[in-house]
Design a protein around this nucleic acid. Structure first.
Length: 422
RNA sequence: GGAGGGAUGGCAGAGCGGUCGAAUGCGGCGGUCUUGAAAACCGUUGAGGCGAAAGUCUCCGGGGGUUCGAAUCCCUCUCCCUCCGCCA
């Protein structure tokens, strides 16, 4: 959610940014401002009425104390009438405020000036590349090599849960466990605090991080108990500090959290969802930061590096994309995607997305910080995957594959894995 | 799941239905004193909305109600604590 004052003062910027993100109809901004000014009028009106009524009521108290009952009765009659009036106007003003805030939630975040303007993924900028994408020779796609070894069971996954809920076995199960430990350990080395979070959240939390109302359909819902299955650890971990004020000397706060992630992925079928490319449930290690507004872009760069270094340690060639305005999403001001090379499929697979939200999420969640002078203001939040498991597993199965079908364990993982081959 | 108790500012903890946005203590910040620090003393210190400002309004877990007036009374929800039951 953007600051209403910011929208008042930067109306054109908000509209332009909205258009750059691909929203053709920007009239919602004008609607918000119109309702807002109407609301402010009514607030002023209610307040002056209430002021009068408050001071009259105080007089009553004094008169009662002095025993002037008849005079008090007269004022009681007057304030009674005012009360009716206040109730009327107040009703319509809270109505306006709700309407305004509903619309406000539908205005996307403003992109940072360093973000390239563009329509879709073709306009993203390659920000960095690392390693040489391996040519496909004998390399099998991961689902084939995994089948040969009995490492993945999609069939039984479908039987037991449904498509997109595979079983992992033996070498791959062990590999995932090793990766999770490795990712968390690396993050802890870089001063992220390890945290384990609830896998279900309530509606307030889902709204806080912006899954509601924008991306409701991505989540699984447990209606009886009014829970949402988390689509990413971002949701519970960012909401950890909801409605709190953090002292400046405690910032930045960096957290690392491993969770399963559930995504409905409605409407995506076909080739690009084969194997581990796209699942309804997958594991991910997530990095989340709460930072002082002055430092959020530095923190974004270091966040991105933290994720990149994981791929470098695994010796998996990757590229980093700076996402353009049109491909960026509703809540971010700037976003990098990390894509790992999949030699068996000869394509790039997204394994991390590192974003700065500035105050957009924190404002919804009322996460604030207090400086030394005691001033309170909204802080900035960021998050990035470090990393999403299945596609990293896919890349390892394909990249570390020998011609004889053996798959080697990446060197940095061997101490976690306990042996040299899967 | 059953029975009872509770929720007040960063923390602890007061608060007859009327000048209570809230005593007091601790903590924080500023100052005096000191070579420096501690101690002591003085001052200051919740959040939010509207407003250029003066100011004003709202908030004592959430929501609703009674009343001219609610932190204080009533209803309801949530959460926490104690006891019983169940349980990895």
């Amino acid at each position: 959610m953007l600051d209403i004052q910011f929208i008042r003062n930067n109306t054109d910027l908000v509209k332009t940014s909205m258009a750059n993100k691909g929203e053709t109809d920007t009239s919602i901004v004008d609607q918000v401002l119109e309702i807002d000014s109407h609301w402010r009028q009514q607030v002023t009106e209610v307040e002056s009425l209430r002021q009068e009524s408050n001071s009259r009521s105080k007089e009553i108290g004094i008169m009662m104390a002095q025993g002037k009952k008849e005079e008090a009765q007269q004022i009681i009659k007057e304030t009674g009438e005012m009360k009716e009036k206040i109730k009327d106007i107040e009703e319509s003003s809270t109505d306006l405020k709700n309407k305004r805030d509903d619309l406000l939630l539908r205005i996307p975040n403003v992109a940072h000036e360093s973000v390239p303007v563009g329509r879709n993924e073709e306009d993203n900028k390659v920000h960095a590349t690392w390693g040489e994408p391996m040519k496909k020779t004998w390399h099998l796609p991961h689902w084939e090599i995994a089948e040969e070894h009995g490492w993945l069971d999609f069939k039984r996954g479908s039987k037991v849960a449904g498509a997109g809920f595979p079983f992992y076995l033996d070498g791959v199960a062990r590999l995932q466990r090793a990766l999770i430990s490795f990712f968390i350990d690396k993050a802890v080395e870089k001063n992220y605090k390890e945290i384990q979070a609830p896998f279900f959240v309530n509606e307030d939390s889902a709204r806080g991080t912006g899954q509601i109302p924008d991306k409701e359909d991505m989540m699984y819902v447990i209606p009886r108990d009014e829970f949402f299955a988390i689509p990413t650890a971002e949701v519970p971990v960012t909401n950890y500090f909801r409605d709190e004020i953090i002292q400046d000397n405690e910032l930045p706060i960096r957290l690392v959290c491993h969770t399963p992630c559930w995504r409905r992925e409605a409407g995506s079928y076909g080739k690009h969802v084969r194997g581990l490319n796209r699942l309804h449930q997958f594991d991910k290690v997530e990095l989340v930061k709460f930072v002082h507004p002055d430092h959020s872009y530095d923190e974004l760069e270091s966040l991105k590096r933290d994720a990149e270094e994981l791929l470098e340690a695994l010796k998996l060639p990757y590229r980093t994309l700076l996402m353009c305005t049109g491909d960026m999403g509703f809540t971010q001001t700037k976003k990098y995607d990390l894509e790992v090379w999949s030699p068996g499929q000869e394509q790039w697979l997204e394994v991390s997305s590192c974003s700065n939200f500035e105050s957009f999420q924190a404002r919804r969640m009322m996460i604030r910080h207090r400086d030394k002078e005691g001033n309170v203001s909204i802080l900035h939040t960021l998050n990035g995957s470090g990393l999403a498991l299945p596609r990293v597993v896919a890349a390892i199965l394909e990249t570390y594959q020998h011609e004889n079908g053996e798959v080697k364990v990446p060197e940095v993982l061997q101490s976690y894995f306990g042996r040299e081959y899967l």
